[in-house]
Design a binder for these strands. Structure first.
Lengths: 191, 191
DNA sequence: CCCGGTTCAATACGATCGTATTGAGATGGG
DNA sequence: CCCATCTCAATACGATCGTATTGAACCGGG
């Protein structure tokens, strides 16, 4: 038969994912178009069309990539750190403490808004949040074994972080204040 | 001089606001176009263009109308109710317990996502949230006078509600579970 | 009666959208 | 060498977008 397939198709797709995220971070989900993504990636529209059948598949794959990348990040941070620190990183990560973090957090919120009217995206987001919640509950149960309902506590903790994250994103609340409020919540939980 | 202006210009604008909200609730912020709004309102595009100079002004005015309407709603619910009930309504209202409430909540989240890259919208949202927070802190201080930092407690409480609201919107968490988690948070605060 | 202002409806324009189509270069197996 | 296949770039098409323009209906005051 003919030629071989490229040995690194994932590389091609990943470059495009980065461009999607950058477009979303800089100008919101409404600015995501084949042409804008192509320009941001420095490639042609045809290339994106070759690697993704449609804009919808591109968006969905970008979210999957983002979620699994975040999960991998967390798993890495787990090695050799104590559970309290790991838990804190897990629940505090929606709060954009650095300017670079703000980009990622805002991208997440854009996907959430899109997911409200897009079941496939919503499902990915719901499962990711559920996984985070389970992991937080597991850590919480290890740290405070006498907690009556770690799952519910984890749920409240993560919801608090997400709500604070939203406040920081729309302004009027600093990341430092948000972090302090979240810390108070966690401390109250652990005493 | 010539003719008089219509005695009810607010009525015209309000009808259009309703159409904007319906379009956002049903199909998301991305579906908001002059033509879609006109169709939803059963009027011509020209009419919308007459009452609003641009799509941007329409969106901004729609958000202002929604926020002040919500504020008026809350003020009305304040009459003759005890503070605990008023506080609960204030803080639990982001959780879409009925299907009709889901529409309003999802519209709010669409505006939040839009606000991330739209300073004028963000400012309106931030001020509204700040006002809610102040009101919740006031009620909280009245109910539990020994609370060390009512403002911070109110902040955490409302953030929890917003985060839970997000979870319910993207699915995988029922409104009842969200309400229970929020109630636990409030109870822990008041004991 | 008509005239100027209000309130639209209709239409037109250029930009941008998603995507289908087409063909060119590159590459490795037969 | 050559041809099939992979990988893209270029382009075209119809739809939809925001908005500017134009004029018609209506109506109260002079």
């Amino acid at each position: 038969m003919g030629g071989m397939s490229n040995p690194e198709p994932d590389q091609r797709r990943t470059e495009i994912f980065h461009a999607v995220w950058r477009v979303i971070a800089e100008n919101g989900m409404g600015a995501v178009s084949m042409r804008n993504v192509a320009t941001a990636a420095g490639v042609s529209v045809g290339r994106i069309q070759y690697w993704f059948r449609s804009k919808d598949e591109l968006l969905q794959a970008s979210l999957e990539a983002m979620l699994s990348s975040a999960e991998r990040l967390h798993d890495d941070s787990t090695r050799g750190a104590d559970d309290r620190a790991v838990l804190w990183e897990l629940v505090a990560h929606p709060i954009p403490r650095a300017e670079t973090a703000r980009a990622g957090v805002s991208v997440f919120h854009q996907y959430v808004a899109a997911g409200v009217h897009h079941p496939a995206l919503a499902r990915l987001l719901a499962e990711a949040k559920d996984g985070e919640e389970a992991e937080a509950a597991r850590l919480l149960a290890g740290i405070a074994p006498n907690l009556p309902d770690p799952r519910s506590s984890a749920r409240g903790l993560m919801a608090t972080a997400d709500g604070l994250s939203m406040r920081v994103l729309i302004g009027g609340l600093s990341a430092a204040e948000a972090e302090r409020t979240l810390r108070e919540h966690l401390d109250r939980l652990l005493t």
